[in-house]
């Protein structure tokens, strides 16, 4: 199994580790694992745009992606904002419902992960974490539907080229 699949499994396990009263440490780690599952799925897909047969090279390339740049690009897509250089858009319905779902999930889970790791005043419940895991699971399914499309490749390209592609010409 891939790292992103394992991380999603880990999130599911952590969420149910405590049979009765879930401990905050496990719920928080579950939120973090769910976010990183989606992060690593998208990084793996973005890396595959360039490298498919050399695992070591792919791993090094994967390290060049950062949360901040990915956040900026996904936030744009979640807000239905098409990069300026790609307008007027030649892909009907771009961004699609599925792509928006993936982008929204990434932005949302990044925020929830931040709270899980740093906001000690925040309390998480099992139901809440269930909802976050469901959001990532839905994003995985939505991504699978569109991953071979032009819009998916453009989306992945934006992780590193958002600033360049978003400049008005």
């Amino acid at each position: 199994m891939s790292l992103h699949d394992d991380l999603l499994d880990q999130a599911r396990e952590l969420k149910t580790t405590d049979a009765r009263r879930p401990r905050q440490v496990n719920l928080r780690r579950a939120v973090s694992a769910a976010y990183y599952a989606l992060f690593h799925l998208l990084v793996a897909e973005a890396t595959r745009l360039y490298v498919r047969d050399n695992w070591e090279l792919a791993a090094k390339l994967g390290r060049t992606f950062n949360h901040g740049e990915m956040s900026e690009a996904t936030r744009g897509f979640a807000n239905s904002q098409v990069p300026a250089a790609l307008q007027p858009v030649g892909i009907p319905g771009f961004p699609s419902v599925d792509l928006k779902l993936v982008a929204e999930a990434f932005v949302s889970l990044q925020q929830h992960r931040h709270a899980a790791d740093y906001d000690l005043a925040r309390e998480f419940t099992r139901a809440e974490v269930n909802g976050f895991i469901e959001q990532v699971e839905s994003a995985f399914i939505a991504w699978d539907r569109i991953k071979t499309s032009d819009e998916a490749r453009l989306f992945l390209g934006c992780f590193q080229l958002w600033k360049t592609w978003n400049k008005a010409r």
């Binding site: 936030r75 949302s108 925020q111 929830h112 925040r122 309390e123 419940t125 909802g131 976050f132």
Partner: peptide, 20 residues
């Protein structure tokens, strides 16, 4: 505003002093 939606259950115990 970006909407961050979380789900809880009415059956969840109330956590005093933790707004979110």
């Amino acid at each position: 505003r970006f909407p961050y939606v979380s789900f809880r259950s009415v059956s969840d115990p109330v956590v005093e002093g933790a707004s979110r």
